[in-house]
Simulated scan of single mutants.
Amino acid sequence: MSAQHAAEIHTGSRFSFGENWSRFLELLDDRRICQAERSLCDMLKVENLNGKRFIDVGSGSGLFSLAARRLGATVHSFDYDPKSVACTRELKNRYFPSDPHWQINEGSVLDDKFISELGNFDVVYSWGVLHHTGNMLKALNNTSSLVSEDGKLFIAIYNNQGRASKIWLQIKKAYNQLPSGFRWLVLWPAMIRLWGPTTIRDLVLRRPFHTWRHYSEESLRGMSPWRDVVDWVGGLPFETATPEQIFYFYSEKGFALKEMKTCAGGHGCNEFVFQRM
């Protein structure tokens, strides 16, 4: 699997999310961890996860696996990207060394055999991951199979902006196909597009770069603004869905929508919490 992942990055068809996350770990602190804990509790409508089985599908940095473990859950984390797996293991070694209640594996949500061997979980969590698999519909389906009876599914999926999403897909392809030394040719114009209006607004309000300087305080994943820009511009594979598409997909599988937060039609993620009925 590692060889396949490396080949996809070499050909420019996949972004190295794990490399981006490894740099994020340098910025991780208790404030960001507590913020992650609060976001889990707020969306799941719980005070803790004591006695719950929690699986992090595409664990990335491992931040939300750590948050779930600190909230009392027994945690299983996995990711397709070997560097993301390494990030998650690093966090476990920092905060829960030798803990038998936190397992970490390398695996793909598209691997039917791997998924079938994991079992069922009270909370299945996958934030901003399934649209990066290359086969989002299968990833959505396989993820749902992990939810136990009465269990909850917490996912976040990129919003479909129509023509704008198609343009971003071309930008992402251009970024990944360029040699690393030339990727700034795509990255800097994209950053100006993403941050230009906000920066101008802050200047007009006489608070220069206020949003940029305080971005990580509001970011759900605790990312720095620069890391988030790189993650967005580079993020391949890339698929999107409207809120309605996600709602109908899971309602037909016997799930009830419990919570939803949309990105108000923007290019970010819509968040959903479903419960298996």
Rank of each mutant, 00 (worst) to 15 (best):
L110N: 07
K152M: 12
N159Q: 13
F78Y: 09
L169F: 09
S126V: 10
W127M: 14
N141Y: 08
F154D: 10
N159V: 04
P100K: 01
Y125P: 00
L91A: 09
K83E: 15
N159F: 08
L110R: 04
G151R: 07
F121M: 04
D150T: 11
K172W: 01
T88G: 06
E149H: 12
L153M: 14
V85A: 01
A156V: 01
L110E: 06
D79I: 02
G134V: 12
N142V: 08
I157Q: 06
H132P: 10
S145V: 10
L140C: 10
S145Y: 08
S148M: 09
D81A: 11
A164M: 05
A164V: 06
N105W: 04
F78S: 03
N141E: 12
E117L: 11
W102T: 02
K113P: 00
V124P: 01
Q103V: 05
N105E: 14
N93K: 06
W127L: 14
E106N: 05
C87L: 02
S165D: 10
V85L: 00
S108I: 05
N105D: 13
S144F: 12
F154M: 15
K83T: 14
K113S: 13
N105Y: 10
V124E: 05
Y125W: 07
N141S: 12
V123G: 02
D79K: 00
W168C: 00
T88D: 14
K173G: 09
H76A: 04
S98P: 00
R163K: 13
Y80K: 02
S98Q: 12
L153I: 12
N105G: 05
T133N: 03
S144M: 11
I115Q: 01
L118W: 03
F121Q: 02
N142R: 07
F114R: 01
H76R: 05
D81I: 08
E149K: 14
N159M: 05
K152E: 11
L137Y: 14
L137K: 14
R163C: 08
T143S: 15
G134R: 08
F121S: 01
H76W: 03
G134T: 11
S77D: 11
A73F: 08
K113A: 14
A139Y: 14
N141I: 03
V129H: 07
I167K: 08
E149N: 14
A139T: 14
G119M: 07
M136C: 13
G119N: 04
D112Q: 11
R89H: 04
N141C: 07
Y95K: 03
I167C: 06
L118Y: 05
K83W: 04
N159G: 09
P82F: 06
N135A: 15
F121T: 00
V124N: 07
E106Q: 15
H76E: 02
S165G: 10
